[in-house]
Amino acid sequence: MARYAMVTDLTRCVGCQACTAACNAEWDVPPGQARTRVLPTGAVGKFPHLRSAFYVAQCNHCDDAPCLSPCPSGATFRAENGIVKIDRNLCIGCGFCVQACPYEARYLNPATKKVDKCDFCSARLERGRQPACVTTCTGHAKYFGDLEDPGSDVYRLVYSGGAQRIESDDVKVGPNVYYAGRRGEPELVAQMFPPRQPQLPSSGQWWSKVVKPLALAMVGATFAGQAIAFFTQLRKGEGQFDE
């Protein structure tokens, strides 16, 4: 069993967006959407102590992925190798998962009307190739591999290279995309782009908090009423049936 992870070395990232372009081409991402984006923090601080970095955002394939449970049909699932995937045969496009993602990594594909996101290029992995963003990265800033393989780059970077997760104080869901950087870039990114609280849209909240309990109560009550009527009838006996 593999535990895939990605590490992006933000010191090496030059913000060229080649990863976004490669990903869009590889997966036919519709215009205006992206599975991986490069977001500049801009200049932060006071002259002359300015800092800046690029946040290379994508699906983090979190250990406690908050997008899994809101999916009504089970279209979003975790594959055995830990990668969070979408079964497009099951997706109905309700978008509950889109709002749940703290990293805003999901979008509705307007062509298929189904949700898409990064799946670590699973189709390429199956053919023994690296994800498109990794092979294309001009600054060689991206590493992809198995955290259970002590010989891998990601193992080294995560366990001894100081690569870290982008988390905030209240959102810690175990992302598996790590960020390295010699000049404090990961901290800067975490400060400028903190993950947001997972949300359930109001339709989903109504469903789980109001409609479902009400429905169960209603069906239960009519069922109980019928059961009582049935047993009263039984007790009264068959006397009046032919009346």
């Binding site: 009504p72 109905i92 496009g93 309700c94 978008g95 509950f96 889109v98 509705l108 009307k113 189904k114 849209p201 339709s203 989903g204 109504w206 469903w207 409609v211 479902k212 009400l214 429905a215 209603m218 069906v219 009550a221 009519t222 069922f223 009423g225 019928q226």
Partner: peptide, 27 residues
């Protein structure tokens, strides 16, 4: 998938609710 995510999201909930009403009548 007619409509935006909001429309589909509400469709799921309404589908469920209306079926529940019919089912309690069916009892």
């Amino acid at each position: 998938h007619w409509g935006s995510m909001t429309v589909v999201g509400w469709a799921v909930v309404i589908h469920f609710a209306t079926v529940a009403v019919v089912v309690s009548g069916l009892m």
